[in-house]
Structure formats: C-alpha cells, structure tokens
Amino acid sequence: MLDKKVKVKAIRELGADNYLLTVNTPEQARLVRPGQFVMLKCVEDLAENPLLRRPFTIFDIHRSSRSGKPAGLDLLIKDVGVGTRKLVQTRPGQLLDCLGPQGHGFQVAAEMRNRVQLAYLVAGGVGIAPLFLLAQSLLTHGIRPVLFYGGASAADLVLRENFERLGIECVYTTEDGSFGERALVTQPLAQYIRSYRGKNIRMYGCGPWGMMKAVHLLSIENDIQCEVSLEARMGCSLGACLGCVVQTRDSRGEEQYLRVCQDGPVMNSRLINWNTVPL
C-alpha cells in the first residue's frame, strides 16, 4: 500500500453518470490484486470539502501500450454526490491523492487448489467494478467465469464490452426490460444454478445490499461457496478508525464487527449478518 500523488491520464464518460477514470501510477498498479480498492481525493487545499477520501474499486490495470507493463489504474466512478462529482470533473493532467491498493481481495489462487471449474459473477450496476480483474484472474487459473449483470436500464450496464472481449458468457438483466431479460439479476442466476450438474462451482457478488443478500441466500440453498465485495462509509481505509464495520458471525455464532477496509471489502458471504445494513 502506497500513498501517491497521481496524474489523471484520461476520463471517459460512459453514460448514466458513470465515468472511467484512468490514473498514471505504475508502482501502485504493480501491487493490485482483484477486489482491492484505492482511496481518492483531488489534490487541492487540504481543507477542501469533502475532507475524506473516497473508496473506489480497481476495475482494471492500465497497461503501457508499448511495453505492456502495468502503468496505471482504471476506475469506474458513478457520480452520486459531492466527492464523486469532484472526481468525475477532473481533467487529464490533474493530480489526485491516491492511497492503495487497499483491502482483502478475492481468494482466487486458493480456489484453484479446490479444482473449481466454473464461477458465477453477479453484478448490480456499479458493482461490476471488482469483477473485471476477477474474471481475468479466473481465466488465467483455468476457471470459466459466467457474468450475470443487472441494472435499472440498458445505460446502467456499463463496460459490458470489456467482459465480452474476454470471450466469456454474459447474461444481462434490466428492470425496465430495455436490454437483456426483464428481471432481477438473481432470476437467471437461479436458473443457471439449477440446471448446472457439476460440483466445483463458486459465486462472487457485488452490488446493492439487497442483491448481495439474495445472491448469498441462493449460495446457501445450493451449498455453493460465495464471496461478496462490500461497501461501507470509510474514514481512513487503514483499519484505524473502525468506522467501516459490518456485523459478522463466526462459525461458533460469535458476533463481531469486522472492518470492510481491511478484513474486506471481499468476504465470504456466510460470515456476514445480512440483517444489519452497514450503510
């Protein structure tokens, strides 16, 4: 984990208030594992509001077009409030404070030893962010990913072409039926789970709490291990303020608050007490 002043390389509007922000930072890019995030703030007066940095998952590692080596980070940012607004209004050349990569990511290497063959990746809206590096990592480990990607409308299903370019199967749903199946993302997911006969399968989810809870419940019903990437308001991202906790239950039923920033953001869904929303 490093704290760097990084330069905005590019910012691309994706529609539905989503932006792809690319920052130059080779040293940080080399450290990234799927599921990790960075904390960002525009470098201005330190006293500038909002004060706190904001967490964003690393969507992809940006590679140098010449050498192919890690050169920066691609971040998917949805404009939802003051902090994100400032970030999406940045221009190439502008400096950002960037702390990371932070957090505990997906346990992909461990899954290889379990001879997992198939992985269901489930995203709701901007929850797509951690799944792209995950999909690439699964592929290099010989695990076949299938993406289930849901949103309110077609415009919300941003960056889907990146997944299609990986040549993986993608299943889309929208609430208004403007693209893919008119359904909640968990509906086709449930069908796929039912029709699959094999055993070594995993699920990964990221999105709104209710969606992740539904994914978790499906994983329990079907006895499939499931990891989710959580969101919480953060103070420090360093594990110091204890502001970002989620309520968890260990195997003995012991309740405990774990830090989303360091013990997560990716956690086994069975650990989480799904009755307490952290946000």
Binding site: P50, L51, L52, A232, R233, M234, G235, C241, L242, G243, C244, V245, V246, Q247, E255, Q256, Y257, T276, V277, P278, L279
Partner: peptide, 10 residues
C-alpha cells in the same frame, strides 16, 4: 464489540 453501523458520517 462497539456500536452497529453506520458509524461514521461526513
């Protein structure tokens, strides 16, 4: 153990 979340707000 501490308080249930959300615990911080800017």
């Amino acid at each position: 153990k501490g308080n249930p979340p959300p615990r911080v707000y800017e």
